[in-house]
Design a protein around this nucleic acid. Structure first.
Length: 411
DNA sequence: TCTGGGGTCCTAGGACCC
DNA sequence: TCTGGGGTCCTAGGACCC
């Protein structure tokens, strides 16, 4: 039996959640985000409002647009419920990003019927609607690539299956930039080489693609044939994994441009505290810390350093992050409008250290374990640590912590 | 219309070790 | 004294995704 993958995408997710929570917004053009549109309802789309468009432009096109802040934690709960519903129908679910996920249909008896996969998707659609009130679009195909491309045609609220044997016909109706993994830069390059359609791309030899695009060229070769990327030497079956280990944990936010070091170090302390709390919650240690600044002139700078020993302690991670931040600030004396911190090279905490170290670490780490427990019970914002106190009075603060610029996306 | 907050993966030079 | 080659880690940055 050939592989069958289902891709599910929640329609206008953040905006739809706002409409569900506030029924007065039903049928009205709604956008969520600040600065740029993170999500818009289909009523807003009908008036020319698109995702990633600046909010100014969105309001210009649609003066009656309702703009909401959103709430990342509420959105997360909706997403979990959608994943659970999907999990009731398919054996393996992989949550991929904020608003989309894959299901592996291999082995399901439904596939023995001619329209089996589509009927399954119809049942998933009504179950999601019933449980959450959300509308979803679904695509089905023999790979993640094809399923995802099919979903684009199914929006909003539809279902499209690329039948077995129809893969090449489906692909050939697309432009190269419709392939996942082909962004602005790659599309420019491909067009300059007079490769406009997927069928054009498929006529190019693999070696030539590799020479021109490097590893991406290999990916293009397989995508043009309906396979997934990252295959290497030969095509393999698509992979859908229930738990994909995360490679990094990061927190960032933009703000009114500032060069006040107290404020910037306060923000750094706060974001790092949030990232480190998640790190400990997932029972991981981080070996790398990176720090990113974006300046008012649009330039951004990033620096990374490794710790000699992986850690989950806020104070150790903080010290390194501060030194990176100081260097970047001294290097460019320009107002800062975004600050981000990322913890990388993650290792499982258990078994990371030898037995002898374990007891000592346990004792020293006890402080943070206690901190996490208090915050788990009473809310993250109940305890403000060290430099983060500089944010008091400058940013609104509640039980869940400081209110950052884009509540719909920042955790 | 110069703009969000997450992420992933790749590249490439240099350090360092054997 | 000058010279090899391979592996791995570190670091900065770019492209891409939603």
């Amino acid at each position: 039996m050939p592989p069958r993958i289902l891709h599910l995408d929640i329609d206008g997710f953040l905006a739809s959640v706002e409409q569900i929570l506030d029924p007065a917004l039903k049928g009205r053009p709604v956008a969520v985000g600040s600065g740029v549109v993170a999500s818009r309802s289909y009523e807003a789309k009908a008036r020319g409002v698109e995702t990633a468009m600046s909010m100014l432009e969105a309001r210009r096109r649609c003066p009656e647009l309702v703009v909401r802040d959103g709430d990342a934690q509420v959105v997360e709960r909706f997403r979990q419920r959608v994943a659970e519903v999907l999990g009731d129908f398919v054996p393996v679910v992989e949550v991929c990003s904020l608003d989309d996920m894959y299901g592996d249909l291999r082995g399901l008896v439904e596939l023995r019927q001619p329209r089996g996969a589509v009927e399954l998707a119809e049942r998933i659609r009504s179950a999601v609607r019933q449980v959450t009130g959300l509308s979803v679009s679904q695509g089905i195909g023999s790979s993640r690539t094809l399923a995802r491309m099919a979903t684009c045609h199914a929006k909003p609220g539809g279902i499209l299956e690329v039948p077995v044997g129809e893969e090449m016909n489906f692909l050939d109706s697309h432009a190269v930039e419709d392939l996942p993994g082909v962004g602005r830069r790659s599309a420019e390059l491909l067009h300059a080489l007079r490769l406009h359609k997927v069928s054009d791309l498929r006529r190019v030899e693999r070696e030539l693609l590799r020479q021109t695009f490097g590893k991406r060229g290999e990916d293009l070769f397989w995508r043009a044939r309906g396979f997934d990327a990252g295959l290497g030497a030969e095509p393999r079956e698509p992979e859908v994994a229930a738990t994909v280990p995360s490679q990094s944990i990061s927190r960032e936010t933009s703000f009114e441009a500032s060069d006040c070091r107290d404020f910037l170090f306060g923000m750094l302390a706060y974001l790092l505290d949030r990232a480190a709390t998640e790190l400990r919650g997932r029972e991981l240690l981080a070996k790398r810390v990176s720090l990113r600044l974006r300046f008012v002139d649009g330039m951004s700078r990033e620096q990374q350093r490794s710790l000699t020993q992986a850690s989950d302690r806020t104070d150790e991670l903080q010290e390194l992050a501060r030194s990176l931040c100081l260097r970047l600030l001294d290097e460019r004396r320009v107002l800062v409008r975004l600050l981000g911190v990322s913890l990388g090279t993650l290792l499982p905490r258990v078994g990371a250290q030898g037995e002898l170290f374990a007891a000592e670490e346990e004792r020293r780490g006890g402080l943070f374990a206690a901190l996490d427990r208090v915050r788990g019970r009473h809310g993250f914002g109940k305890l403000v640590l060290g430099n983060a106190n500089e944010l008091l009075g400058r940013l609104p603060n509640g039980d869940q912590g400081f209110r950052l610029r884009t509540p719909s996306l920042s955790k």
